[in-house]
Structure formats: structure tokens, C-alpha cells
Design a protein around this nucleic acid. Structure first.
Lengths: 337, 337
DNA sequence: CTGAAAGCGCTAACAT
DNA sequence: ATGTTAGCGCTTTCAG
């Protein structure tokens, strides 16, 4: 097990080989202006020849810029890694950052030792942070917004702070639209399977559903809590059906729950959309894997991530960034309604 | 937009407050032995009082240890972020590392500029790297194993190098077992929907299927390529059926493909498992979301990630680590067979 | 067991 | 346009 940690060539070596000072090499490496073209050439040649790669730690130490961004995911949220929405957001963040010189540090905030993550974040190890939280514990990061640039994915449950930047979709409006879609198709007994109630998205979608129903003068009593998973959706659907009241449509706060509801409906011998129309939220693989395929509200998940990264990078660069970036949603009509 | 980048207290401040030298503070921080208990107390008090957090860059620069680990994911593989298996592996890696002082740097290796990732890796920015690849392009990282500790998730397609460490499951054996399960249940016309052929897992599962069939003296001609997705599985199933030859069972190299195949079988009016038995691979959410639920080969995905992290950390610490870590698989019997 | 001194590799004024 | 001079905050011999 002998690995050749061949000591990397330093900036100084490059300077010697190119016959210039270290400052000049530094300038060339950092694409600073005012360097004679021929010198740039000479330096680059030397860099090439030596296979020089700048040492990040030294750079960070001297410049006070880490070129690193943290993606903070609370431990309990991390369990939802496989949730298509989260996965896509992370993918979007990673892709956008791959186009920059920023490095992405994935931070699973352990519940056991919250101080560890905070210390890391406050210790000047990153230039900014992204918070992706499923739950309301994101509250613990809001205050950090005063110490370094922070962008939240989805509005945090806690009070707003002026330094808090958020990327989100208008969940109330989107849910309301989905519900109206059902109403327009003549449904009157419209149920809702909620997302988690400790998440803004879950609460807002519930609000949107209720609003649309209220405006149409329809009853908004058929609600059961889900948890964004297929199993949770099926369980909620079962409770809904077991109430014994008539139901002719259901709006689930996620495709996964709609998928689970669909399965249960089939088991109970109910036809979709004939007996019950079903609409989901997300437009992910579950929407097209189900039979019938799901009508759903599409939210741009990858763009959700790129927008977060984009906002943070601009924030770090000292640019003006909107406190709230709202991404568009779109109703996708399929066979379940 | 004014953020208070309150300059963090340095080790020197702590030394002053505690009335000792910087060296001593450093020793305490690094839990070095031979420091008088009372001094340790004094220093810790000062650290507490000042809210001191060591500067990572300075530490790295001075000690030549980054305390960072890179998780490299080729761009094309990153598109499979939502694949439950990948998501779980990443989750496992992140969780295991969260228990250490290592930081996880997520590196999406851009196809456009492969040099960027390599430079980063070679530039002494990390103490070790983990490679998670869906495809055969992991070959480009095998040689880096000579410069720093590397652990692959799934055996790379390229030739082995003595410094290459791998965490994997025995795909040949597992696939063979799945196939034998079908044979034992009296099936004789057993088809296979492959994974990607440019992945070791895809190739090995095909080999295992063929081996079991050969040993039983059964024909191994019913093969169609899939790509690990539900859509790919459905398409492969369609081609299989369109051959017009009898089929009484199918082994799909992933639950997602089995799921897709199941949907297609239903469309064609075939009953599972009565007419056709179906077995998948992974045991993820698709296996329990499908109707009927899938019999499948379970592979411990989270442990896959923790094992990778574990091996790398030990490698970095200079410990002896097996070149190949094989994780156990298990047949999970459900309604589809 | 503790302190002094010398850097780690790079950037950033300040000169020139 | 380029070089000089100081560090950035920490670890690490080497003394004692």
C-alpha cells in the first residue's frame, strides 16, 4: 500500500521556470489584467510543463475566499434522498455549481450534534450555504443568514429575516389551480391528501385546496394527512374512503401519494377517473408509472436547484438578488382526471 | 445587504486568553497527549468563551491533510440521482462521513471538461475519493488510485489495478440465485431484461442468469436490453412478447424495469404470476409499489455507501483494507412469483 | 510537558 | 507591468 504522493509543484517553481516573480504567476493564474501577453504565454507554458495545480487551502487562507458552498440537509430530510423531487433539486444544484469554480460540500446536519454543522458553517469554511429542508427545523439556520449568504429551497417555516433568500413555487396558487381543474370537470366531493404539516409546502397546498373549494362554495372537509410517500398516500386514501362519505375526486400533495391512493382505489374496486378523479403534484416518474397516468401539477425540480445555486453565487458576488424567486408551475393533463 | 463577517477568533487569541503558547492550544485542539489536565481545562474554557473554531484552510495548509473526501459522479451517471439505489448509496456515504471529521465534496465530473475534475483531485484538495459510476467511463479514474486512496462503488469495467479498492455485491451469484428461484418454481421459459451493458452490474447479472439456465439445461435465448428504468423495462418486455415465443417468467436486472414489465404484462392481459412470474433486483420502493408486489433480490444499498466510506477512511488512515468488499444479497419472496 | 521558530503555498498591498 | 514584502492561521520540529 504505497502511494506516491508526489509533492505537487508550487507556484514558486512555476515562477522560476518562467523567469518571473510569484506575484506575476499569481496574476496569470487569476486572470488579472495588466500582464504582458508574452509573459502570460511563458507562465502558462511553465504551468503546463510542470502540471501545476494551485493549492486551494493556501489560496483560501491568503484570500479569505473558500470557493466552497455548503448544501445543508437536516438528517431527517436526508432520509428522503430518494424522493424524486429532492434528488432533482440536488442534481440541479450540483450541475449549476459544476459550471463554476465553487465546490459543493454536502452537509448532513446530524440531529445528535447540531453544533457541529453550525460550527463548520460559522468557521469560515464556506462562502455561502444552501438549505434544503423537509421539516421545520430549518429554523435553526435562519439566523446564520446574518453571518453568510444563505438561500433556502422552499420557504422556511420560521419567521422571515431580511437576509433570508428563498427559491420556491407558489404552492397555494398551484394547489388552488389543481383543485379548480377538478371543479371544472364537474367534481363536487373533492378530498385532499396533505403533505407533511410541518413543511411549508404541505401547509400551502392544503391552503390552496381549501381556497379553491371555498370560492366555489364547495365543502372542504375531506382531508387526511399523508407524508409524501406512496404508503402514506394509500393509508390516507383508505381513511378517506372509510369515512363512508361520497368522494368523487382527490387532490394529493405529491405524485407519490397520488400513486399510493390510486393503488388503494383499485383494490377497493373503484375506477379512475370514472368514479374518482385523481390529481397529483410534482410530475415525476410516479406520475407516468401509474395506471392510469396521473394528471398533476408540474414543478421544475432541476431548475429549482439551479435557481438556488444561481441566487447564492450572485449573493456571494455581492449582487442584488430578489428575496423570493418564484418558479412557475404547470398543470399536466393525463388520464387520471 | 450588509452581512457581518465578524472576524473569527484565532488560535492566538485563545492562547492569550488561556495564558499559554499557540503550540499548546494546538495540542489541546488536536487532542494530543502530554498536556497537563489543568492546562487543557484552561484552554477549553478560553475556546468556549471565544467561540473559537479552527480555520480549516490554515490547518490543511500546515498539516497537509484536507479532511475532505470527494464523491465523484460522472455527469451521465448523475442523471440517475433519482435512482433509488444511487440515492441510497449517497445517503449511506454521507451518513457514515457525518460521523467523522471528514467533509464530503460532491463532484459532478463534467464530460465537457474532464480535466477539471482530475486537476481538482490531483491538486491535493482531498484526502481520498469515492467513485460512483453507472458507466464504463470510470476507467478514467482508475489511474488516480496511484496518487491517492480511491474506493469504487461497483467494480469498474476497466482492468484492475492493485491500488483499486472496490465495494460491490456478487451480481453473478445473486442473478443466478434469482433465476434458480424461478426454475425451482417450475418455470422453463425464463427471459431476462438486462441492465445497461456498459455497466459491470448489467453484464454480471446477465452472466448469472445465463449460468443458472445452462446448469439446468434450459435455453438462454430470451434476452432484451433494458436501461434500468421503468420505461426501458416495459419496452424490453414488449419486444420479448412480440417475439411470439412462449415465456413463463422474466428476471429483470432492476426493480424499476420489473415494474415497467409488470405494467406491460397487464396491458397485454397476462396474469402475474399465473401466466408469467416476474422477479426484480434491488428491493426498493418500486418493488412494494407494484401490483402484485415484486419478488426481488435485495442488495443493501445504504450499507453499500457506508462500506465505501468506511473503506476509504481506513485506507486514508493507512490501514490494511481488502481490495474487494462483497456485501450480501438476499432473495425476498413476494407475490410476483 | 511547553514554548520558540519556521514554514505550509498563496494573495495582496505597496513600491517601482 | 512586475517585483517586494508581509502575512493568512495553523502545525510541527526542535529545544528545554
Amino acid at each position: 500500500m504505497s502511494i506516491d504522493h508526489g509533492s505537487a509543484p508550487t507556484l514558486e517553481k512555476v515562477a522560476e521556470l518562467a523567469g518571473v516573480s510569484r506575484s506575476t504567476v499569481s496574476r496569470v493564474v487569476n486572470a488579472s489584467p495588466r500582464v504582458k501577453p508574452e509573459v502570460i504565454r511563458a507562465v502558462n507554458d511553465a504551468i503546463q510543463k510542470l502540471g501545476y495545480v494551485p493549492n486551494r487551502a493556501a489560496r483560501t487562507l491568503a484570500s479569505r475566499r473558500t470557493q466552497a458552498i455548503a448544501l445543508v440537509i437536516p438528517e431527517n430530510t436526508a432520509r428522503f434522498f430518494a424522493d424524486p423531487f429532492f434528488a432533482s433539486v440536488i442534481q440541479g444544484v450540483a450541475f449549476r455549481l459544476a459550471q463554476t469554480d465553487y465546490t459543493l460540500t454536502l452537509l448532513i446536519a446530524a440531529e445528535g450534534d447540531p453544533g457541529k454543522t453550525r460550527r463548520y458553517l460559522q468557521g469560515g469554511n464556506v462562502d455561502g450555504m444552501l438549505v434544503l429542508s423537509h421539516h421545520n427545523d430549518d429554523a435553526s439556520y435562519v439566523d446564520l443568514a446574518g453571518r453568510l449568504p444563505v438561500v433556502f429551497g422552499g420557504r422556511p417555516m420560521s419567521r422571515e429575516s431580511e437576509n433570508v433568500h428563498v427559491v420556491d413555487v407558489d404552492n397555494i396558487d398551484a394547489a388552488s389551480r389543481a383543485t379548480r381543474h377538478l371543479i371544472e370537470r364537474g367534481r363536487t366531493r373533492i378530498a385532499h391528501i396533505t403533505g407533511r404539516r410541518d413543511m411549508a409546502a404541505g401547509i400551502d397546498r392544503l391552503t390552496g385546496w381549501r381556497r379553491a373549494l371555498d370560492e366555489a362554495g364547495l365543502p372542504a372537509e375531506l382531508v387526511e394527512d399523508g407524508d409524501f410517500t406512496p404508503e402514506g398516500g394509500a393509508a390516507a386514501m383508505r381513511r378517506l374512503l372509510d369515512r363512508g362519505e361520497p368522494i368523487d375526486a382527490v387532490f394529493a400533495a405529491s405524485d407519490q401519494m397520488a400513486f399510493g391512493a390510486l393503488n388503494l382505489l383499485r383494490e377497493r374496486g373503484m375506477r379512475v377517473p370514472d368514479d374518482v378523479a385523481v390529481i397529483g403534484f410534482d410530475n415525476n416518474s410516479y406520475a407516468i408509472s401509474s395506471r392510469p397516468e396521473l394528471t398533476t401539477v408540474e414543478q421544475p425540480s432541476i431548475e429549482f436547484g439551479t435557481a438556488m445555486a444561481e441566487a447564492l453565487v450572485r449573493l456571494i458576488d455581492g449582487e442584488e438578488v430578489d428575496t423570493l424567486t418564484l418558479l412557475p408551475t404547470r398543470l399536466v393533463q393525463r388520464a387520471s382526471t
